[in-house]
């Protein structure tokens, strides 16, 4: 079972609960959830999570801005970051990968597929 710390920044209540359940069931990750972009970013800057899951449309600071800021900092240049969003336009996906996201998962998703993608990403690191 994979271990580590995961920070999820997601303002939707059900998505947050669902991801938490997936991590509790499938991985041995310490799970921290934030509903606000600014608060989440501040936490990440003071800690070193092994995985970050970011929604795009967030209060405070949006997912793209957070991703850009993290990639510019030396400490989080190589941290695994997944964008999770209902935005499924190719331009949004392209923007996410341009900003060096490791994965882009669109909602709606299948739980099993979500698990497989995280496992693959974490094993690659």
């Amino acid at each position: 079972m994979l271990k580590g710390n995961v920070v999820v920044i997601e303002d939707d209540e059900i998505t947050g609960i669902l991801i938490k359940r997936i991590f509790e069931r499938e991985f041995k990750f310490n799970f921290v959830l934030f509903r606000n972009g600014l608060e989440g970013l501040e936490y990440i800057q003071n800690n070193s999570p092994s995985l970050i899951i970011l929604d795009i449309m967030l209060p405070g600071k949006n997912g793209f801005e957070i991703l850009k800021e993290l990639r510019e900092s030396e400490a989080h240049k190589n941290t695994k970051i997944i964008l999770l969003s209902a935005k499924s336009n190719s331009s949004d996906i392209e923007r996410g990968f341009d900003l060096s996201a490791d994965e882009y998962i669109t909602k709606p998703f299948q739980q099993q597929e979500f698990v497989v993608r995280i496992r693959k990403l974490m094993r690659a690191s």
Binding site: L18, A86, K107, P108, F109, Q110, Q112, E113
Partner: peptide, 10 residues
Amino acid sequence: EITEILNGDD
């Protein structure tokens, strides 16, 4: 609300 998040078998 859950339908907006999950698809496939779920």
